[in-house]
Every structure is written in C-alpha cells, then in structure tokens.
C-alpha cells in the first residue's frame, strides 16, 4: 500500500485508491499525488475583468510616457499553475508549472492574497512541468503546493513592435519586459487629416481672396474655426 504525507498538516496518509485525489483523514484537506509526491492545490479567487487588466497596462504605459496603444492585439484571462515549495531551510521556491506562459513575463513571487482550496467540481489547468522536474535541484522540500494564479496575458503593439505583458488579477500588478525605445515623432492619422484639411482651406482662401484685406479676414476666420474645432474635440476626449 502506498503512503504519503498530507502537504497541509504532515499527517501520514495511506493511498487506498488509484485516484490522484485524496483527502487527509486528519485535517480533511483535499490533496493530489503526482508521482508519489503529495501536493496541495490552492487558488486565488478572482472575477475576470479584461477592461481593468488592459486599463492597468495602459495606465502604466501612460505613466512611463509611452505612446499608449488604442487596443490590445489579444487579451486572455486564465488560471495558470505555479509550483511553490517551502524548503527545509525556511526559504521558498516558485516557478511556472505550465508552458502556456512561454514568452510572457512571469511574476517573480506569488502575489499577496487569500489562498483557498478549490471547491469540489471546480477544475483548474493541469501542470505540464512534473513536480520531479521542479524539485530536481531542490533539497528537502517540506511542503509542495500548486498555486493557481489568475493572470491576464496581453499582446499589444508599441511603436510598431509586438509586446507581451502579464497582469495579475490579484493586485492588478503589471509585469512588462523592457519597453522598446521610441524614436521619431508619432503623429496620429486623425491629426494629419485635420492639419491637411486646415492647410488646404487656408491655401484655397489665400488664393481665391481678391485682396490682402479679404485674405486676412478669411484666414483669420479659418484659424478661429479650426481652433474652436480642436478645443471642442479635446473637451469630448
């Protein structure tokens, strides 16, 4: 008969069934067994909100002085498994347990929040990195946990270059790689259109006006109209 230890309370548990899921007879914690290693699974409760995650990212870009993209190329919310080991010497180890995050910046440590055991019937993504691989270079783990982190994976364009960012659903903290250097001056197409129309009108008025008086009056009127138009556009923003 196989035996293991409850990852929550350390009580010796006999694995009576072939199932991966077991309940500790001491503390009633549901835990899983991966290749003989007992693991407790915990998650951070979160209500998905893509708009807030995108807002947190563009808020940070805005503060950094970057040109804020109008919309994300893609945004996806999901729970992502991370291995978290408490070691004998009191330190901890934390690492992504799946490959879905490849290419995205990763949180260096678990976020602050209330960890809960998954309710019955709720399933989370499975780790693709085995616990043995994670524990390969770790001596004497006291407790191994599989933490399910609510994360938003966002791809967007910055200065014409594709970028990837991760936003934590627990604290809305944004994890970003180094931003690409912005060179040159970025002028929006709407602004170019407005300036083009304004210059065309001025040229038309300047060439069609019969004399300097009417030319000045017309150009002054166009200037005032353009100014009023721009101010009203700003107010709308």
């Amino acid at each position: 008969m196989n035996t293991t230890r409850c990852p929550q309370c350390g009580f010796k548990a006999e694995l009576l069934t072939e199932s991966d899921f077991h309940t500790c007879s001491q503390c009633r914690t549901l835990f899983r067994v991966f290749g003989g290693q007992s693991v407790s699974e915990q998650y951070f409760r979160h209500e998905p909100n893509d708009a807030l995650a995108w807002g947190a990212l563009i808020g940070l870009l805005d503060f950094a002085g970057a040109v804020v993209p109008a919309a994300p190329t893609a945004i996806s919310f999901g729970y992502h498994p991370f291995w978290f080991a408490d070691l004998d010497n009191g330190s901890t180890r934390f690492k992504a347990a799946g490959s879905a995050l490849d290419g995205y910046p990763l949180p260096p440590a678990p976020p602050p929040g209330n960890l809960e055991f998954p309710p019955p019937g709720r399933s989370f993504p499975q780790p693709t990195i085995a616990p043995e691989t994670f524990l390969a270079r770790i001596e004497a783990p006291v407790r191994l946990r599989l933490l399910q982190l609510p994360l938003y994976l966002i791809t967007f364009e910055l200065s014409g270059q594709p970028c990837q960012a991760t936003v934590s659903g627990c604290t809305w903290q944004v994890y970003l790689p180094n931003l690409p250097d912005e060179t040159g001056v970025h002028v929006s197409s709407s602004r170019l259109l407005f300036l083009g129309g304004y210059i065309a009108l001025l040229l038309l008025a300047g060439t069609l006006a019969p004399n300097i008086f009417w030319r000045s009056v017309l150009i002054a009127l166009i200037l005032l109209a353009a100014w009023w138009f721009e101010r009203s556009g700003d107010r709308k923003d």
């Binding site: 503060f63 001025l202 030319r215 166009i222």
Partner: peptide, 27 residues
C-alpha cells in the same frame, strides 16, 4: 501610486504659425 501628469497641448500657436506662413506666401 503612479499618476501621470496632466497633458498640456499648444492648440492655437501651431495653427497660427501655419496661417501666418500661408498668408505671406499667398500674398
């Protein structure tokens, strides 16, 4: 906290410069 500063945009001046230059060249 990380609040960005307020944006200040020159609205009238760039339009006035363009108008002034075009008034001259069309005269």
């Amino acid at each position: 906290c990380q609040f960005p500063g307020e944006e200040r945009r020159e609205r009238f001046l760039p339009l006035a410069f363009i108008a002034m230059v075009l008034l001259g060249w069309t005269t």
